[in-house]
Design a protein around this nucleic acid. Structure first.
Lengths: 234, 234
DNA sequence: ATAAATAGTGCGTGACACTCATAATTGATG
DNA sequence: CATCAATTATGAGTGTCACGCACTATTTAT
């Protein structure tokens, strides 16, 4: 046939329908949560029969898994974009922290679906996989910071990662509950913690972000004095 | 009647039955998760009819809420016990961190139920309430540390709290996945982060907990040297 | 054109949370 | 102790859904 509407190959049509299902499912899951979501409603929104969905996805859980996978894959790409071009490690960390907590708050519905996935169907190896890809953005940043001597070389990556993502996640949750707590403070706190904990002297010298009273900074100045004195004595 | 078995008053029997239901429900929920848990199974284990449960709890969600509430209330008491008697703020922090992550790992099943509760029935004001009581253990500790001049007076409590609970929670999750990551390291990392970020100079002087190679520690020694040198010059 | 393969349909079914009419238990009262 | 009202217990019954399945429609290959 030369019908323009059917100029699409079978695979393309299937592909499109799959996206339609995912879009419909996302909206329904987000609106009603996993339990409240009705397959019938998803089918209706996707403009297909209920049974058709089961051709594409074996179960309701599988369907949600597909949604969540798509979400995190896209988010990983966006995260990489957010830090691209930031040369300074701490600038990049700040950007990533800002991106991450913003995403956590704006897309909290989808993120909660991810949580639900874990409880509904434990031991989903695939969930673990795309989460790994996502946090790799931080890992790369941190390692590069270490190579450049801005972050302590002996700092243990996974500990720093736990502090980073754990704190932001927890903060996001409280931001959502407490309403009046501002995102920028959370981000600045994060950067501050990293400076204090993992920053090398190289970072602190010439740095002006630490408010008066910071130990490391003051000690740094003291060391400079020592060096001066030692030179004087020679 | 003087039948010893029925020497219990009506209220006592009701009370006991309620506990029996909660115990049965806990075990079933933990074994099968929220969705997999069958009310019929809970009734069977509690030794009562299915309908009886609905006399005590209006819905399945309400039942789970009761379980979770009991859990956190008990945990709060244990947490307070864990820090009692620790005079040094950092010792207490260490103890609390250890207690918290141990609980997170040992009782991860119940804690996940808490998460599930949030998604299944959002805006549960009561969940927020007993969580608040639980984190208050940390808040008290931190404030006392500030009063004593061991923690920076201008540090913002909620930020520190987010770092503390957020990091531990995230770590617990990865510990459970990665299997080989040891708890003590996580706890020490936590204490280290707090020392670096929120500790005042008063804490660092004379402290020996930071392993060689740590910036703050090294700078501390450098300062001691400066002071010595300066004295010598007088 | 015809067959083979693939995609779509929607009614049927079993599982399960929750209801309700009825029964059993309790403790107060004369 | 007998009676009664209030409370608590029961389990068969009901409505809602996820999912199965027998069948139809459409596309691709021959």
């Amino acid at each position: 046939m030369t019908d323009p509407a059917s100029s699409l190959t079978r695979r393309q049509k299937v592909e499109e329908r799959e996206q339609a299902i995912l879009d419909a499912a996302l909206s329904v899951f987000v609106e009603h949560g996993y339990r409240g979501a009705r397959i019938a409603e998803i089918a209706r929104r996707a403009g297909i029969a209920e049974g058709t969905i089961y051709i594409y996805y074996k179960t309701k859980v599988d369907l949600m898994n597909a949604i969540v996978a798509r979400f995190w894959t896209d988010l990983t790409i966006d995260a990489r974009d957010a830090v691209r071009g930031k040369d300074d490690t701490f600038e990049a960390l700040r950007a990533l922290a800002h991106f991450h907590i913003t995403a956590l708050i704006e897309r909290i519905d989808v993120i909660e679906l991810t949580q639900t996935l874990r409880t509904v169907k434990p031991s989903r190896e695939d969930v673990r996989q795309y989460m790994r890809s996502y946090v790799a953005v931080f890992d790369d940043l941190f390692s590069r910071g270490q190579d450049r001597g801005l972050l302590q070389a002996d700092a243990i990556l996974w500990m720093a990662r736990d502090v980073f993502y754990g704190t932001l996640e927890y903060s996001a949750r409280t931001v959502l509950l407490n309403a009046k707590r501002d995102l920028d403070s959370v981000v600045e706190n994060m950067v501050y913690v990293f400076l204090s904990t993992y920053g090398t002297p190289a970072v602190h010298i010439g740095s002006d972000q630490l408010p008066g009273g910071d130990v490391t900074d003051r000690l740094e100045r003291a060391v400079a004095k020592v060096e001066q004195l030692l030179k004087d004595r020679e």
